[in-house]
Structures are given as structure tokens and as C-alpha cells.
Design a protein around this nucleic acid. Sequence first.
DNA 1: TAGTCACTCGCACACTGTACGACAGGACTC
DNA 2: GAGTCCTGTCGTACAGTGTGCGAGTGACTA
Lengths: 233, 233
Amino acid sequence: MESIWSRPRDAAPARETLTREQIVQMAMTTLDTEGLAGLSMRKLAAKLGAGATSLYWHVPTKVDLIDLLIDEVWGEIDVPDPELAGWRNGALLFGHSLRSAVLRHPWLPEVMYTRPSLGPNAMTLGSRGLVLFGAAGFTGLDIDYAMSCVMSYVLGTASAEVAVQGEVRKAGQTLDEWAAEMVRLAQATVADHPVMQESLRRRAGHDVSRVHTESFVFGLDTLLDGLEARLKK
Amino acid sequence: MESIWSRPRDAAPARETLTREQIVQMAMTTLDTEGLAGLSMRKLAAKLGAGATSLYWHVPTKVDLIDLLIDEVWGEIDVPDPELAGWRNGALLFGHSLRSAVLRHPWLPEVMYTRPSLGPNAMTLGSRGLVLFGAAGFTGLDIDYAMSCVMSYVLGTASAEVAVQGEVRKAGQTLDEWAAEMVRLAQATVADHPVMQESLRRRAGHDVSRVHTESFVFGLDTLLDGLEARLKK
DNA sequence: TAGTCACTCGCACACTGTACGACAGGACTC
DNA sequence: GAGTCCTGTCGTACAGTGTGCGAGTGACTA
């Protein structure tokens, strides 16, 4: 449980100097544009006009830096107040906010499942989420369960979504070009999977990213329906 | 869309020789016991009594090797025939099978979200899943949506679960020791998050891995409830 | 016997995270 | 003003990484 959150920060800076905030921000834009593989301490330092090992004064290790970045993302998500939106609307908004954060930061799934999130933003995200599902009427452990099943679902779908987006970008195609090639290639590959072929044909006509969104909404609605039903029992 | 699946395999071997299957299997046990960071081509080759670069005759790159390993995992999951189990029971069993596969191979989340799965086992998994949800009564794109929301939910929860397990193992504690320390530490850290503290206190009494399972079942049931309700409309 | 193919492997390259210790400059104490 | 500390920078070095290249070896075929 030794983590960057449990160690105290240092006092005030003295002269014109690198800051942890600068480092985090530059790392964030690097990650967003070049992906996890594009982030090295040397390159990051160079972008900041600093020597490679200077970063280590501000940040203990690269892993800790990434923990900071993850928590930064948690800070971007908004969890509505159930008083204002109602719990179901709030959960819906929360889900969409969470998904779009993952889509904005496609490197997140690659790193977030290596370590539980214990940073300050993760904490307030958790708190507000619990408030939301507590307001819905859940009690005891069910509050936690309701919160975490919505969160897991959203992160799961969004993660899968960025996986195909990453593949597509690497191939230098548009999503629809990729999907089309996928269908063509499937004629040969999945010859013995008629059910799979049918599924591919179903999607072929539609805009790929719309299908992704629709699929996401379908699942989220279904899950919230299930939660609502559970409340009425 | 250039992937290891689209390239043809080579002909028969000649003399006593390394095989792709050996490599895959050894890599699998290494990954399961030492994690992703413990797998390097050099060390893997050494375990097989081979030179490092010999592996590259059998496998194009490390990334491709990992693709093979991922597909191997997909092959372990069973998707029941809806004729035998009924769709809801089938989906339940599928979910549990999927979750336990992730728990057996905790390195999976770290790699599976970097690229869509297109291997043969992924295909049959997909096919059988579609059959299952087709049998439930869904039609058109809804079949795909139903299938993928269950899959995303299960993978999402299981991924989060292995994240805390990994942290715990790294700390060399049992799950419950870790949880206890977590609660203790939270007294200070989350002082301004009373809702979070309450949640931690709720869990404190219970066996941690039982709570995980319960949480998983709660969400899966809820999701299937939602799907069932959708069918009746 | 010669040649070809399947396979192995040592070396080398460019790159990684980061420990260490030397250094510089501002701020404090005497 | 002199000395000392604390904050911050950075060059060098180490142990590792994935993998391209080309030389080598054994078995089979003509």
C-alpha cells in the first residue's frame, strides 16, 4: 500500500524551476497523442527542455508518474448531484462522462488495470458515485455493488472501443475503411463461422462509431433498468 | 488489419526442434506466474534452452506472441449451448467462465485492450455467444449488443479485480491484510470523504474475495434482469 | 556428392528506467 | 561577509529490452 499518495509533498520551490504539474501536463499530452509507447522519461524531459534525470527529483518513478496521470483523468469525470438530476439521469450522465474520458485518453485501459486507483480524484469520484447510488435507494453493500457494476460496465465497453480505435489508427485508415476490410477479410477467415459473418454483415451498413455508441447506450440502459427493477423489489 | 492470423503457417518441421506450441505454452506459464513484466524474449528462450533470437523463427514479434497467448485464453472459456442450459443459465455460466479465466490469467487486462481479438478462438467464442443471445430472442443488432454488454461487464469487473489482487501480491500480503491496512490508512487519507469511509467500513467485516464475487454476481444478475425485461417488451 | 531448405544463434543497435554523485545557486545562520 | 545547507539539475553508467542481420548447422532431396 506504499504509493505516491501516502508520501507527503515537498515544501515551496525556490527559483525558476520545473514543477510536477508541468511534468504531468506534458506527459498527458504526450500520452494522448503518441500513446503509452511514446512516453519515455528521456523524451519527456527533452520536451520540457530538461535533462532526463531531472524529472526524478519531482517524481519518484515512471510508474508513479502514470499514477498521477490516471488520477488526473478521474478528475475530469463529473458525477452529477442526484438532487438535481435524479439518480437515473445522474447515472446516465456519469456513464457518458466516464466513457468519453476514456475515449479522450485511450492509453488509460492499458494502465488502469495494473493497480487500484487511490488518488484524491479517484476518492472524490468514488464518494460522489456512492452518493448517487445511495440516493437511488440502495442500502449497505448494495450501494457499492450498484456503483461498481455501472463503472465496470462503462470502463469495459470503452476499453474495448479504444482497442479497435487504436488498431485502426495504427493501420492509418478510417474506422469505416477498416470495418469494410474486416468484412472482406472475414469472408475467407471466418468461413466456418456463419453466425459471425452474419453479425459482420449486420454492422456493415452502419456507421461504425454510431454502432459503438448505440451498443454502449443499449448496455447502460439495460443495466440501469436492472438496477431500477431491483429497487422496486 | 495485418495480424498474425492473416499470415499462413509454415510447413512441417524437420528434426527435433522448437515449436510454436512449446513457446506459447512456456510463455503462458511465465506470464501466469511472473506477470507481464516477467516475460522477456531472452528469458523465455533461456527457459526453453534456446538462443534468444531462435524464437523469432517461430513467432514474428513479441506482440504477435502475446496475441497468440490472448487467443489461447479465449479458448479456455466455455459458452454453453442454449438448447441445453437455456439462455439465461447459459449466459450466467459464460460470465463465470470468463471471469475465472481472467482471474487465472491476471496479465490479460493489461494487454487485451491494446488490440481487438481476431484469432480463431476469439471467433468461435464470438459465434457461440451470438448463438446464445440469438436463442434468447434478440434480433438484428440487438444480438450483438446483448452479447457485448455482458462481455464488457464481465471483463470490466474481472479486470478491476485482478488490479487489486496484483497490488496485494506485490505487497506480499493476503487480501484481508491489505484491506485492513487500507481501512486504517483511509482514516487519514480520506478524512474529507465520509461516504468513502463508510463504504470501507461496510466491507471491513467481510471476506474480501467473497465480496468481490458477490459484487460480480450482483452486477451480472442485474444486467441479465435488464436483458430479460427488454425481451418482454 | 552437391545443393537446398529448415532452423539456430551470436553479435550488434538503438533504446529503456533509473541509481549515483558531482555540481550550481539561492537562503539562512553566524 | 563567510560558511553552510537545502533545493534542484544533470552527465555518466548499468543492466536490461526487442529484434535485424548474417553466419552457421544438420537433414533431406536430386
